[in-house]
Design a protein around this nucleic acid. Sequence first.
DNA 1: GCTTGATCTGAACAGGCGTTCAGATAATCT
DNA 2: AGATTATCTGAACGCCTGTTCAGATCAAGC
Lengths: 194, 194
Amino acid sequence: MARTAGSHSDITGPRVREAALKLFAQHGYAAVSMRRIAQEVGVQAGALYNYTPDKQSLLFDLMRGHMDELMAARSSEPECNTPLDCLEAFSRFHIRFHLERPQAVFISYMELRNLTPENFAAIEDLRRRYESELETILRDGRDAGVFHVADTKITTLAIIAMLNGVNTWYRSGGRLSLPEVEAIYWDMVRKAVT
Amino acid sequence: MARTAGSHSDITGPRVREAALKLFAQHGYAAVSMRRIAQEVGVQAGALYNYTPDKQSLLFDLMRGHMDELMAARSSEPECNTPLDCLEAFSRFHIRFHLERPQAVFISYMELRNLTPENFAAIEDLRRRYESELETILRDGRDAGVFHVADTKITTLAIIAMLNGVNTWYRSGGRLSLPEVEAIYWDMVRKAVT
DNA sequence: GCTTGATCTGAACAGGCGTTCAGATAATCT
DNA sequence: AGATTATCTGAACGCCTGTTCAGATCAAGC
């Protein structure tokens, strides 16, 4: 046997990425074999190499794709005026964006150590750029006398950590709706810095 | 060759756990082989099985040991009086305890999915018990009219997530001392709930 | 309808995996 | 000193790993 009926790269390609995303998030990069991914796609392991040069690239492409999406979505957000408005927009955007793609978020935080040094550096650079947007907001607010933060760098990381925490417990259809969650977290963020 | 000079379970046993802790934290449970752990200890892989029935138990024992230490340390903390004092004590204790054992903390958060279902349930139970201590403080404070929190369960998770974030960036000997870090985070926690 | 190129199979490669165990040696006890 | 026990080695087990590739088959273009 060889090429199978209905096979097409436009179909198989995305399915490979989806399978890898799902399985990496579920069991971890190191615990998932190429054969297991192939099984999920419904194909033999060798066929995966039409879509990725190797397993490492599969992971890296998922992560970079996620970070690129993050930066792009952030860029196309409406502009803000006051530091307080900007901080609220950032908080709500962060929660919304991350809750929409829990698997990619999970991978991007858990599998950093399975990246090669070069790939790790690339992802870290993107993350740093994203976080610096929040720090800029905090610095502007502090300079304007609106925010009272002891250390903008640490406050940035603390806020990000708190917002990321949503992904550990939120389930759509649960007790709280997305707007309610946004409101609760924004309230805590606002109070923490003012 | 067989038993080596100077070999003793009182020495090798702890070294096995230390090696596993270090390597699991560094590369992840699934990515670390028993042979790699043995190499770190300076022994052949078979010798490890004098100290653990299998690899899974090695991971689980590290995690349960960490959680047991956490609960024990928390229990032997001095008592607190007001909700505000209790929250401050909890926040400072949490930061201090977690910064003292970054590897065990890392493993306990990252390797949950590599536990068998029964082992996972056991660890989760301990974690829930610890977190419920914070929630009790928040509820008491809210009932006393000191804290203003929309949802004690979510606020609990948000605070824990924020405090845990310290471990991602803090390095002893860095720009900030432990007391300074404690103060900064306690300030944010206090403001977020009052 | 035939050709060309894209897609997949199935087998193979060399090496690593967790785990077991008989046998050898060191430490300990009497 | 001799017997006993604790500890470790080294080899082996069956299975799984990421990756490659020749050959087979399907889809698409002329």
